[in-house]
C-alpha cells in the first residue's frame, strides 16, 4: 500500500457515496447512465470472484465487498424505485460493443490462460471503457448537474492516482509492472480528457457543467 493507491481507493469510494447521495437527494436518476452502472457491476462481479480464492488483507476484502454491494445497490435503485426517472432514449450507447471489445482483448492478452485470469483481464479492460455510456449521454444532452459532474470527476481521478501508484511500485518493488493495468489505466484516464478540461474550467469556477 502507498499513499497514491490509498488516495485513489478513497476517491473511488467517495465517487460512489456521491452518486448514492445524488440518487437519494433528488429521488431521480436523470442524467445517470444505467448502462455505465450495469457495466461497473459486471466489472466488480468478474474481478472480485477472487474473494473466494485467496486472501490479501482485511482492507482488500472489505473494499471488494463494498464495491460489489454498492454497485448492486445502485443498479437496483435505478431499475426499481427510481425507474420512472430513467430516460432510456438518452442512454443510447450500444454497450454490446464495449463488452465484446473487452472480451476479445481479454482472450487475446491475459496474463495466463485460466478462467479467473481471463475474467480478471476482462474486468480491467471493461472498467477502462465503462464510463463511455455516461460520457456519451453527457455529450448528447450537453450538460450535467453539479453533483453528477463531481461524481464523474472522482471516478476519473481515482484511476489517474492509480497511475502514480504504478510508477511508485515500479521504483520501490523491483521494477514491478502489470502491463494490463497500465494499458487499461492509460486508456481509462485518457477517456476523461475533455471532461476534466470542462470540469476544471467551468465547474470548479462555480459554473455548471455545459458543453460549449
Amino acid at each position: 500500500m502507498n499513499i497514491f493507491r490509498l488516495s485513489g481507493d478513497l476517491l473511488h469510494l467517495a465517487s460512489i457515496f456521491i452518486l448514492i447521495a445524488r440518487l437519494h437527494q433528488t429521488k431521480s436518476c436523470a442524467g445517470i447512465s444505467l448502462k455505465t452502472q450495469y457495466l461497473y457491476l459486471l466489472v466488480f462481479a468478474t474481478r472480485y470472484l477472487d474473494l473466494f480464492l485467496g486472501f490479501v488483507s482485511v482492507y482488500n476484502t472489505l473494499m471488494k465487498i463494498f464495491f460489489l454491494a454498492s454497485s448492486g445497490y445502485i443498479v437496483y435503485l435505478m431499475y426499481s424505485p427510481l425507474k420512472a426517472s430513467y430516460d432510456k432514449s438518452l442512454d443510447s450507447f450500444r454497450v454490446e460493443y464495449i463488452i465484446a471489445f473487452a472480451a476479445v482483448v481479454a482472450l487475446a492478452f491475459p496474463h495466463k490462460y485460466s478462467v479467473v485470469e481471463v475474467l480478471w483481464s476482462f474486468s480491467i479492460y471493461l472498467e477502462s471503457l465503462a464510463i463511455i455510456p455516461q460520457l456519451f449521454q453527457m455529450t448528447r444532452t450537453g450538460e450535467a448537474d453539479n453533483i453528477t459532474s463531481h461524481y464523474v470527476f472522482a471516478l476519473g481521478g481515482y484511476r489517474a492516482l492509480y497511475m502514480l501508484n504504478w510508477f511508485y511500485r515500479y521504483y520501490t518493488e523491483d521494477n514491478y509492472v502489470d502491463y494490463i493495468s497500465w494499458i487499461a489505466g492509460i486508456v481509462q484516464t485518457a477517456l476523461y480528457g475533455d471532461f476534466f478540461y470542462i470540469y476544471i474550467t467551468r465547474v470548479l469556477k462555480g459554473k455548471s457543467f455545459k458543453l460549449p
Binding site: D9, G54, F67, H111, Y176, D178
Partner: peptide
C-alpha cells in the same frame, strides 16, 4: 522485471 504474481490491487 518482476511480474505480478497475484492481484493485490482493487
Amino acid at each position: 522485471s518482476a511480474q505480478p504474481a497475484e492481484h493485490d490491487e482493487l
